[in-house]
């Protein structure tokens, strides 16, 4: 059973300079966005979930495993994290080998690893690049490869750290589709992201971090209703939502389609 439980979690490098303070949280099958300014503690939180960092106090349980005691390599079988910069992980000279590296590490038999890797490449639309050298691809294509390399590990939980950076329109659409596909397959998807339009279009739940604490947590629509709180946290609203507020004060519109439907009523 997939589960993520965070209990009164705190983290710091220096005690007088806390990064996360007393965070309690559970996740579910809803696609979840974590937003907040740089330095709010988003990346630290997901590194703690992955077991890459250990809590200073409090605890985190992933699928009934205590992250304080289980090794990162073992946790890697349950929870995948796509790093911001694909260059931080790519080292194989063929795309398919790169994608298969994680699956083999977490103990998938070779046949299964090949199938999972091909499916993952298919999902990100890179199946025809499987024999290319990753460094012959563009940065945004390498990002898609790094996404596939995590998906192929077939973990219950997939976390993305800023997946849309340096992606153009087509790349963003692909990533949006990947997130929906994963959710349909029963995976839990958590994403750190700055792009508010993308948040509004893609995620069911949104968590706002500010100064190491949870400022807001709710459905994406509820969150974007808290206009003033968001602005105070240095965040902005999706463009379509801004126009919605200008026209009708208290209605939160999240997508262009919604806006059009409302206008035609």
């Amino acid at each position: 059973m997939t589960s993520i439980t965070v209990k009164s979690l705190s983290f710091y490098y220096k005690k007088e300079d806390p990064i996360l303070t007393d965070i309690s949280l559970t996740f579910d099958q809803r696609t979840t966005a974590i937003i907040g300014q740089n330095g709010a503690g988003k990346t630290t939180l997901v590194k703690l979930l992955k077991g890459l960092l250990k809590p200073a106090s409090g605890e985190i349980w992933i699928n009934d495993q205590d992250t304080r005691v289980v090794s990162v390599a073992k946790l890697a079988g349950y929870i995948g994290l796509v790093f911001q910069n694909p260059n931080d992980q790519i080292f194989k000279s063929k795309v398919i080998d790169e994608v298969m590296f994680g699956p083999l590490n977490v103990g998938q038999p070779k046949e299964e690893a090949i199938t999972n890797s091909m499916n993952a490449l298919l999902m990100v639309g890179m199946e025809d690049k499987k024999d290319d050298h990753p460094y012959d691809l563009s940065l945004s294509e390498r990002k898609l490869i790094s996404i596939a390399s995590i998906i192929a590990m077939n973990t219950d939980i997939v976390i993305f750290d800023e997946p849309t950076i340096a992606q153009d329109y087509a790349g963003k659409e692909t990533i949006k589709r990947v997130i929906h596909d994963l959710q349909k397959k029963g995976k839990w998807v958590i994403t750190i992201i700055h792009d508010m339009d993308f948040v509004a279009e893609t995620f069911a739940r949104t968590i706002v971090l500010a100064n190491g604490k949870i400022l807001l947590d709710g459905t994406t629509r509820e969150i974007f209703l808290q206009k003033d709180v968001l602005v105070q946290a240095g965040l902005n609203l999706p463009h379509v939502t801004q126009l919605g507020y200008l026209l009708e004060k208290n209605k939160t519109v999240l997508t262009i389609d919604e806006f059009i439907k409302d206008s035609k009523l």
Binding site: A73, N85, D88, G102
Partner: peptide, 16 residues
Amino acid sequence: STMATISDAQRSRGIE
């Protein structure tokens, strides 16, 4: 610090 990130990224893919 880049090296620390890389090590994190590879450990995340199940490498000890």
